[in-house]
Design a protein around this nucleic acid. Structure first.
Lengths: 159, 159
DNA sequence: CTGATATCAGTTGTACTGATATAT
DNA sequence: CATATATCAGTACAACTGATATCA
């Protein structure tokens, strides 16, 4: 089925929206839905006064235990340069602790505090709600399938 | 299946990557795959010296015919403020033409030139190749399903 | 008057680059 | 020497905001 005729003169009453050829491009759909997801997650975390990267760091620390800033960068996806201020904020709020590594004095050992652990539990709930809103129109099987397909894409482009 | 134990001391030889709890978040997967898609599309269009928004404007003009800048903004998704410079570039390259609307002198009527039409045909091929790279690991049925699911999300959050 | 249009100037947010001091 | 770490300053880019002149 072809698009609207090329060079069509705009007629009044004709509904106009993003052209189908544009709207169905995978790259465009990914960008659009990613933006919606980011907006919902950002709004959810803002309820606790925190940001996406704060959550990523706390989850990584919980999963793997104390780590250097370089390790946290690699595992969470935050740029090394930006990790500094993220940790400054988390440390100032008492959610993480920075201590020099006695075995390698270039490094800081970053670890979760009990306060950070409690905060993470709350963020987990907020994130779960946000993700549920992101996937709202999909049933459970569709959600699983979407995640599977996205992981296949992510794995392919990461390798 | 639980994650790695909480507070685990890093053991040498343990492979480390983004924690599973983080890696499987739909919002994160969308952001990651969208970034890859954008990178591939940007690289593809750069082969013709053009950008994403240039393509979006040309496609919209082909689909709906001559339009005002405000209409192009609404239909292509480009911010009104940014449309100006996009059209400046496209007009300077001879791909579109700006003419005052005799019926409403606030408006410009933007239309495709023959040069722009030829350029669009080339961009269509470049985009098709880029999208094919984006979806590379998926078979045809999976590609269709992914687009269907993403469109459901996009439609839900647009309404 | 209001509201829409095109334009430009400027802000914001985020990813990223580059340089530096320190230590391995 | 080369390499790795943490830090900070500054860049690049896109999305967005706000103001203005023009016109319906």
């Amino acid at each position: 089925m072809p698009d609207a005729p090329d060079h069509a003169t705009p007629r009044h009453g004709t509904p106009r929206r993003t052209p189908e050829r544009l709207a169905q491009l995978p790259s465009r759909l990914l960008a659009e839905t990613a933006a919606h997801g980011d907006r919902l997650v950002t709004a959810g975390l803002a309820a606790a006064g925190m940001r996406k990267w704060d959550y990523a760091v706390l989850v990584t620390l919980q999963a793997y235990g104390p780590a250097s800033q370089a390790e946290l960068s690699d595992w969470s996806g935050i740029h090394r340069s930006d990790m500094v201020s993220v940790l400054n904020d988390l440390a100032a709020a008492g959610h993480v602790q920075r201590a020099p590594d006695p075995g390698d004095r270039r490094r800081n050992i970053v670890s979760l505090t009990p306060t950070g652990r409690r905060r993470l539990a709350r963020l987990d709930r907020l994130i779960a709600e946000a993700e549920d809103r992101v996937l709202a129109p999909l049933d459970p099987a569709e959600r699983t399938e979407l995640v599977r397909l996205l992981r296949a894409l992510a794995a392919h482009h990461a390798g």
